[in-house]
Structures are given as structure tokens and as C-alpha cells.
């Protein structure tokens, strides 16, 4: 019992720390990639290659004067960024970060908890994430903040629907909603491919919705200086603003991890059982493979941000409701049809 508690506590702390560090260095990575795409140098003052820049940014955020508007609803004003940060960190619990490691004859799984409703849990946390933005925007008692919050939340609700429908097709195919089982089904050998091969449309819809859910370009409408002064966080200053911005980067990391797990085999890598490696080594290489996939998707987020211009708001809504949702429903029907034919003719 005690050893179980210690092992879980260590795992939780490690995963929490890793998400924070990855999110922290995503800000640095974003600036460097932006600089590369625009033929600049990027941050290079703090430390070698500017590697200490995120620390400097963090210190700056903490040291800024904290202003809570007099007319705001103070309790809710503080609650907003708390919820944003909390929900950003919560999804990491169900993601299988690796297979089990064996130490002293005992198996330690690298997933904090394997609840058999993994996908639904993830989805539930996602749907609560809206509240951080909404409460913060409303509590500021500022019309621009409220407009920004409403924009952000209506965008998130709209794309949640298409996202859920695209996952349903995947769940129909895999027959489980435990993230661990979905990953294990994608283990190599016998022409057993990653899910993206069987669900290309579902993957594309999921990816587009993930961009919209994390408020990244081309869907970064909630933050718009020219129309809304700032966005839902106009009135926020100091680390509360920092939390909102930071939550976006954590969301980006977590959603990359989810995409990698659902569609790109998670911690599996090609020929993992054919090379004659020991179990522990395979697990460690698996974690490395998962993080390589995650970093690729984080890079994709940044790549798109510095390449594609943003949508107009009506275009965003049209894409969500009139294209993605019918497309994902069609995908569900097609998946169902193929599953039935497969059962009937055994191929």
C-alpha cells in the first residue's frame, strides 16, 4: 500500500513537472521557430542560444505588479486562471506515457491511472476547460473581456462536437475507450498499422479541432488586438495572465500527446519486439518514441501558426458546423459499414 502510494506520487510529480517544463520550453521553441521562419535570430541574450529565456520570462511575470480591477468579481477573477491551469494539467493522468518498467521483479506502469473510460475522461476535462475562460472573462467586468470570453467559449463548444464525433469513429474501430488498450492495439508486427492509416479522415478532423480547442492559429480568434483590445484576459496582469498563456502551451503539449496516443501508436515504435531488446529498454525507447511524436506535433502547431493566416469568425463557425460535423458523421457511417462488412466476410 505504502509503496504503491509512493510510486504513484512520484509518477504524478514527474509527469506534472515534465508537462510544465515542456510547456515552458515550447514558448522558447515557438520564438525560435518563428524567428527561423521569418529569417531572424530570435531570443539569444539569456544564456547560450537564449536557452534561459523562459526562466527570464517567468521571473518577469512573477515580478510584475498585480492588478485586480476594483469593479471585478474578485473571487471569480482569481478562480478563472486557476481553472484554466487545473484543467490543462488534468488530462495527463490518463495518457499512457509508456509500457511497464520492471524494477526488482515488480511491474510499474508508466500510466498514472488506467480507468476504462479514458477517452471520456479526457473529453470531460476538455469540456470543463471552457469555464476558465468564461469565468475569467465575465469576472473582469469589461465588455471586451466578455466578448472575448464568449468568442472563445462558443468556438470551443462548437469544435468539441466535431471532435467527439471524430473520436466515436475511432472508438467504434478499436472497440475500447481505454487509452492504454487503444495504444496496445497499435503495437507493431503482422502489418498492424497505426490508427491513422485506418482513420485518416477522423485524424484530420481531430487535428483541426485540436487546433481550435487550444485556440491556436488559424483559430486564435479569442485573442484579437484589433477588435477586442486583448481578449478574454484583457484585465489580467502578472502571473494570472501568465497562467492563461501558460495553460495554452500545456494544452498544446497534452493535445499533441493525445493525438500521438490515439492515432500514431503512442509509445509503440516500428520493430519494437523484433530487435531482441530487454523489456525495460523497450519501455524507455517507447517513452522516447512517444516524446518524439509529441514534439513533432508541437512543431506542427508552431509551423501552422507562422504559415497560415487566421480565419474570419463566420468562416470559423461555418467550418465547424457545416463541414466538420457532417464529415465526421459520414466518417462514423463509413466506419460502421466497413466494420460490418469485415465481420461478415472476415477480412
Amino acid at each position: 500500500m505504502i509503496s504503491f502510494l509512493i510510486y504513484k506520487t512520484i509518477l504524478v510529480i514527474v509527469i506534472f513537472a515534465v508537462s510544465l517544463v515542456v510547456a515552458m520550453y515550447s514558448t522558447y521553441g515557438e520564438r525560435k521557430i518563428a524567428a527561423f521562419m521569418q529569417d531572424r535570430i530570435g531570443p539569444n541574450r539569456a544564456g547560450p542560444f537564449g536557452i534561459l529565456q523562459p526562466l527570464a520570462d517567468g521571473v518577469k511575470m512573477f515580478m510584475k505588479e498585480e492588478i485586480i480591477p476594483d469593479v471585478s468579481n474578485k473571487a471569480l477573477f482569481i478562480l478563472g486562471p486557476c481553472i484554466a491551469m487545473l484543467t490543462a494539467c488534468m488530462t495527463g493522468v490518463v495518457i499512457p506515457w509508456g509500457a511497464a518498467i520492471t524494477i526488482g521483479g515488480e511491474k510499474y506502469s508508466l500510466q498514472i491511472t488506467d480507468i476504462n473510460i479514458g477517452v471520456l475522461y479526457m473529453f470531460g476535462v476538455l469540456s470543463i476547460g471552457v469555464y476558465g475562460v468564461m469565468i475569467g472573462g465575465w469576472a473582469s467586468n469589461n465588455k471586451f473581456s466578455l466578448l472575448g470570453a464568449i468568442r472563445a467559449s462558443s468556438q470551443m463548444i462548437s469544435y468539441e462536437v466535431a471532435m467527439g464525433l471524430s473520436i466515436i469513429a475511432l472508438v467504434m474501430m478499436t472497440g475500447t475507450i481505454s487509452l492504454k488498450e487503444i495504444t496496445e492495439q497499435q503495437a507493431g508486427g503482422n502489418w498492424n498499422m497505426w490508427n491513422v492509416v485506418y482513420q485518416p479522415v477522423g485524424f484530420l478532423i481531430f487535428l483541426i479541432c485540436a487546433f481550435a480547442e487550444t485556440n491556436r492559429t488559424p483559430f486564435d480568434l479569442p485573442e484579437c488586438e484589433t477588435e477586442l483590445v486583448g481578449g478574454y484576459h484583457t484585465e489580467y496582469s502578472s502571473m494570472k495572465l501568465g497562467f492563461y498563456l501558460f495553460a495554452e502551451y500545456i494544452n498544446m503539449f497534452i493535445s499533441s500527446a493525445v493525438i500521438a496516443t490515439l492515432y500514431f501508436g503512442g509509445y509503440n515504435f516500428p520493430f519494437m519486439h523484433d530487435l531482441g531488446l530487454s523489456e525495460n529498454l523497450i519501455t524507455i525507447l517507447g517513452v522516447v518514441a512517444l516524446f518524439a511524436k509529441i514534439f513533432f506535433f508541437i512543431f506542427l502547431y508552431m509551423w501552422v501558426r507562422w504559415t497560415v493566416p487566421r480565419f474570419r469568425y463566420d468562416q470559423l463557425m461555418n467550418l465547424g458546423w457545416k463541414i466538420l460535423i457532417p464529415l465526421s458523421i459520414g466518417n462514423i457511417m463509413l466506419t460502421g459499414l466497413i466494420t460490418l462488412l469485415r465481420q461478415k466476410y472476415y477480412f
Binding site: I115, Y121, F123, Y131, M134, I150
Partner: peptide, 26 residues
Amino acid sequence: AQFLAAVHVIVYAGAIMVLFLFVIML
């Protein structure tokens, strides 16, 4: 009843109450 719990959170807390909050805030 884990499924019921998750669906309860998604549907009631995540969808219906968001719309409630929307209307009241506006």
C-alpha cells in the same frame, strides 16, 4: 457507474451549463 459519471460531467457540466452561463452572462 463510471460511464454515467463521465457522461454526466460532459453533458450537464460541460454543455448544458455552459449555455446557461452564456445566456446569463449576456
